[in-house]
Design a protein around this nucleic acid. Structure first.
Lengths: 334, 334
DNA sequence: CTGTTAGCGCATTCAC
DNA sequence: GTGAATGCGCTAACAG
């Protein structure tokens, strides 16, 4: 343990603790010579400031919290990568909390963070958030940046992607490839994220004079077996010739079901999914994806939060929209 | 902000701060009636203890650090999932640090953690660790559990998988499938993790009377383009009929190179990789994997660390070895 | 069972 | 330029 304290440094150098403290923070009041002596000894003795003491005194923890539904997820792990990157560069530490899309867990985390443990919060909200009180209390009490999975009716700093537009483009892409009956796997239905993706889909249908058939829209949630059976039913009964999956998690079940039902992709069914799978081009057959810039989202969200913390001028309801990419596959002609 | 303090609770209840503190921690010295009064008011006022003050006084931060090479990685993100799970259940917070396999970054993190910020550390060491001083200083100063990527010459609590055995089995599996010239993509060559996997491979060759050819072993590191060209050279020149990849990251390059070189998998080349890819069965062709129980590793590592923190009897050099699974694919006959 | 006192390590007044 | 004194909020030792 770096048990050495400012007091001990002071004793050794025949200085007061106050002087050492000021020297360490490079205060203008301290002479260059003294600063050097302090720094040298601190380095020699491997001095590390005690973060609790510092936080208690200064009300700055140099720590951020990241609240996400799931860490074992391509999108979120890449986003955290970006967040960690920026945080480290600025000397911030990163706490991770997983909600598993449970809104009570989320509320409990938020409550526990309202005690000075962190200076700010980055959150991608739980898709089962029905009660938004805890989200609001968070927003009022501490700097927050929402990223990707957000609520529409909350004024706050947000980083999203062009969900509406990319779903629209993807749907139109299927139409151009000849699809007449396009299904939609609808997830995140409580969040603006999910709703936008659905709107992009329905609007694209409308613009192309395809009648919207609500039976082609399957609402999915955390219940995997239920999702599976619903999708299976969709593919077996409604026989769509195209599918837009609004989240990555539903694609593998789709592939499995197609195999079961002897549906040939892309001949019988063309699939496009929101997805950050690195293996998408190597799947059998390769998967056309709408890929979100997860790393950049993390970078942007963290950067913005740090700006907020440093009282830089940031609109407190600024919304940054990054662009997803539709990645087509030559091998499937989709 | 939950700006309310113990002092304020005490004032409101006509008690001393000490009594309130004891009541909050459910001390046996306090009467049931008083406890109830305290709890009720605390709840009503949404009291949250100030973690810095508590840590400063008690020398317990209820926080763990996880140091890993990369978070955007199937294995590690699943492991963190397990770690976060156990930590939350026990009221611990989880800090994340990525080294990007850079040993200086790793050293800097460790140094900054030796100041009471965390009660314990879970680490999967950087594969470019040449200087181990910082690892040793960590081990001596704070409870640590090593998981997956560890060093051989350090006595500490470790969680690993049966790397030697699983590489052995995989190699033998290829031999049984008729492979005569088996290549090995050798990563993590500084770590016991990587060395064990290599030994499993060489020993399996020896047991089956196949002469070890060092040209079939390609040493890989963080340099992706170099790895790529080396693997390409291996496949083009040495023409192995089987490949064991010691890490997941090298599989996709392999698939790409095979496509380039018109090598047909599995007819010309059978591939087995250490991998936690969920898409492995859906790849073209599907991939035979040695899959590590990442989530369980996280669970086990965190559980063990918490035991250490609670001074439960744990051998300080206990090594837990979990089993990986060789997942074969009917479709490729491998 | 409860109160008083002290101090964790640091950063900020206010003096000089 | 530097030192002395104070308190952040909490908990532990010591009383009673």
């Amino acid at each position: 343990m770096s048990n050495i304290t400012i007091k001990e440094l002071a004793l050794e150098l025949n200085l007061s603790a106050a002087t050492v403290s000021r020297a360490l923070s490079d205060s203008y009041e301290i002479s260059a010579a003294t600063k050097q002596r302090v720094w040298d000894l601190a380095k020699k003795l491997n001095y590390e400031p005690n973060p609790s003491a510092s936080t208690l005194r200064s009300h700055k923890s140099k720590t951020l919290a990241v609240i996400i539904p799931e860490i074992a997820n391509n999108f979120f792990s890449q986003a955290i990568n970006g967040i960690e990157e920026v945080s480290r560069q600025h000397g911030y530490h990163v706490l991770i909390y997983q909600t598993h899309d449970n809104s009570e867990t989320e509320a409990a985390f938020i409550k526990s963070l309202l005690s000075g443990r962190v200076d700010g919060v980055l959150i991608s909200v739980s898709s089962e958030t029905n009660n938004k009180d805890h989200i609001n209390s968070l927003d009022k009490n501490i700097p927050v940046v929402f990223f990707d999975r957000t609520l529409e009716d909350i004024a706050a700093v947000k980083i999203t992607t062009n969900d509406y537009e990319s779903a629209y483009i993807a749907t139109e892409h299927l139409i151009e490839r000849g699809c007449k009956k396009i299904g939609f796997l609808f997830a995140l239905n409580n969040l603006s994220t999910g709703k936008s993706r659905l709107s992009g889909y329905t609007d694209a249908l409308a613009s192309n004079n395809i009648t919207y058939d609500k039976n082609q829209v399957i609402t999915c949630d955390k219940n995997e077996s239920q999702n599976h059976s619903r999708i299976k039913k969709l593919l077996a009964k409604n026989k769509p010739d195209g599918i837009i999956s609004s989240i990555e998690e539903l694609v593998l079940p789709c592939y499995a079901i197609c195999e079961e039902l002897n549906i040939s992709i892309p001949d019988d069914l063309k699939i496009i999914s929101f997805s950050n799978l690195k293996t998408a081009p190597f799947l059998n057959p390769s998967l056309t994806t709408i890929t979100q810039p997860a790393f950049e989202i993390g970078i942007t969200a963290a950067t913005l939060l740090l700006k907020l913390l440093n009282k830089k001028q940031v609109d407190t309801d600024e919304i940054v929209v990054l662009k997803s990419t539709l990645i087509k596959r030559a091998s499937t002609g989709c």
